[in-house]
C-alpha cells in the first residue's frame, strides 16, 4: 500500500511542478513581451495559456481521485489540500500572464518610453514576482517551510510599486493625451502583477500549512 500511495502523491507533486515551470515561463515571457511590446511573444503566451488550463483540470481531477480512493489523513491530507489550492493560484497567475499578453496585442503603442518604464519600476516588479515564483517552487521541491516564509515580505514591494504607478501613469497621460488608452491598459498590468503577489503569498502559506501544519492565513488581524 505504501508504495502506490507514495507514487500517487509523487505524481501529483510532479504535475504541480511542471505546471509551475510553465506558469513561470509565461510570466517571464510576458515581461519580455510588455517591455518590447512584442506581439509575437504575446501571441505565444496566449496559445500556451490553454496548456496552463489543461494542467489545472488534470491536477484537480487527480487530487479528487486521490481523496476519493485513498482517504488521506494528516500530512497526506494537508499535502493534497495544499496542491489543490496552489493549483488554483497558479492558474490565476497564468491568467494574469495571459492578460498582460492581451494588453500587448491590443495596444496601439509600438514602443515603450524608456523614461516611463524607469519611473514605473516595472522591471523591479517583474523581477520580484519571478523571484517569488522561483523561490516558492524550490521551497515546495525541497519541502522547506522557511524558504517559503521568506518570500512573504516581498509582496509589500509589489503593493508599493502598484500604488505609485497610478499617479505616474496619470501624469504621463496628462502630458501625452494620445497615450490615454495605452495608460489605462498599462495600469491593468500593474494591478495584475500586484494580484500575482497576493496569489504567491497564498502559495507560501499553503506550503507552510502542508509542511508545518501551521495556518499563516489571516494571522495579521490588526491590519
Amino acid at each position: 500500500m505504501v508504495k502506490f500511495v507514495e507514487s500517487e502523491l509523487t505524481q501529483i507533486k510532479r504535475e504541480v511542478d511542471q505546471m509551475w515551470t510553465l506558469v513561470f515561463n509565461q510570466m517571464e515571457q510576458s515581461h519580455e513581451a510588455v517591455l518590447n511590446l512584442d506581439r509575437t511573444i504575446a501571441q505565444q503566451i496566449m496559445v500556451r495559456e490553454r496548456r496552463v488550463d489543461a494542467y489545472e483540470l488534470k491536477i484537480d481531477s487527480d487530487v479528487e481521485d486521490f481523496i476519493a480512493l485513498f482517504s488521506p489523513v494528516a500530512v497526506d491530507l494537508r499535502f493534497v489540500l495544499a496542491m489543490l489550492k496552489i493549483n488554483g493560484d497558479l492558474e490565476r497567475i497564468g491568467d494574469y500572464a495571459d492578460g498582460i499578453a492581451r494588453f500587448v496585442r491590443d495596444t496601439d503603442m509600438n514602443e515603450m518610453d524608456p523614461e516611463l518604464i524607469e519611473n514605473l519600476q516595472i522591471k523591479t516588479m517583474f523581477s520580484v514576482v519571478l523571484n517569488m515564483l522561483g523561490t516558492l517552487q524550490e521551497a515546495l521541491r525541497e519541502e522547506d517551510a522557511a524558504k517559503a516564509t521568506a518570500v512573504l515580505s516581498q509582496d509589500e514591494q509589489l503593493d508599493m510599486i502598484n500604488k505609485s504607478s497610478a499617479s505616474i501613469l496619470a501624469d504621463y497621460a496628462r502630458k501625452n493625451p494620445d497615450a490615454i488608452p495605452f495608460c489605462l491598459g498599462f495600469g491593468g498590468v500593474f494591478r495584475k502583477l500586484e494580484r500575482t503577489g497576493d496569489h504567491l503569498t497564498n502559495i507560501a502559506e499553503e506550503i507552510v500549512f502542508y509542511i508545518d501544519a501551521k495556518v499563516l492565513k489571516h494571522n495579521n488581524a490588526e491590519e
Binding site: 489523513v73 494528516a74 491530507l77 494537508r78
Partner: peptide
C-alpha cells in the same frame, strides 16, 4: 490525531507508512 498528529509514529501508522 487525524490532521496533525504530534508523534511521527502516529503519523506513519494513520497514513499507512508503518512497518
Amino acid at each position: 490525531i487525524f490532521t496533525n498528529p504530534h508523534k511521527e509514529a502516529t503519523q506513519n501508522y494513520i497514513t499507512g507508512r508503518f512497518g
